[in-house]
Design a protein around this nucleic acid. Sequence first.
DNA 1: ATCCTACAATAGACTTTGTCTAAGTCAAGG
DNA 2: CCTTGACTTAGACAAAGTCTATTGTAGGAT
Lengths: 138, 138
Amino acid sequence: MSDLLERLRGRGWRMTAQRRVVAEVLDGDHVHLTADEVHARAVAKLPEISRATVYNTLGELVSLGEVLEVSTDKRAKRYDPNAHRPHHHLVCAQCGAIRDVHPTGNPLADLPDSERFGFTVSDVEMTYRGVCPNCASA
Amino acid sequence: MSDLLERLRGRGWRMTAQRRVVAEVLDGDHVHLTADEVHARAVAKLPEISRATVYNTLGELVSLGEVLEVSTDKRAKRYDPNAHRPHHHLVCAQCGAIRDVHPTGNPLADLPDSERFGFTVSDVEMTYRGVCPNCASA
DNA sequence: ATCCTACAATAGACTTTGTCTAAGTCAAGG
DNA sequence: CCTTGACTTAGACAAAGTCTATTGTAGGAT
């Protein structure tokens, strides 16, 4: 993720303080912030950044394939900067904590033709649910 | 689903015209309506039913385990009356059509301990994505 | 059959999440 | 350093969902 800014510049992105801040906020592993959380953290670094800019920038990052949209809870979308290795998610049913996980196996092969209804199936998204150690001990 | 009303009565549910209508609207296979769609169809059968009642009733049905909430697109939640056989979903990326599917294999077993981060994992939800025959031919 | 009462339904205000627009600002090439 | 088109802004708007105070009613008690 540290070279994200470089890659974006290379793609002809016009670099602005706002975009830099949004990219910085999204840096890290197991980061899955909502747009509002991204905005809150961005404001802490750059008080005059607007909500619309955060939404625009997140949308652009998603279009460029640099960030993934995930919706593990049924509320707001979350943004996942770990777009370069495919992965799935493990979510705590109680506190909502999210971890990136890499199951073995090939779930696409597990869908028989008779269950495809003529669709051309290209992808599968898996959300494991459970209780995290923190909530289990509480 | 036809005996849903019976089961609910057995659970001490107070039966009202509104609840009956919501349950009727949800009847069927491969039914995945949004709350608003449920409301629209309910209004057709019982014009004075309110939006809040539809939301309340859907929420109660979900709590009772009679209906599942699914969020295949990132917009509104959808309600799936097929709560008695576990299943996953296949979604058309273009038109949003949804089918219930039953993959083989045991995805829970495909998540190694090293990828569980101490969670007690109890469930997995899979969303296959692709293009339906209709959209493919268009 | 009628009455009571707790539970259910209603309208509409409110909240959250996200999108759009018109006008001002600024990065980067010339 | 000027220009220009892309970027940002504030705030209005929209969609999805929740909450509240009030009114209505299902179903047991009488």
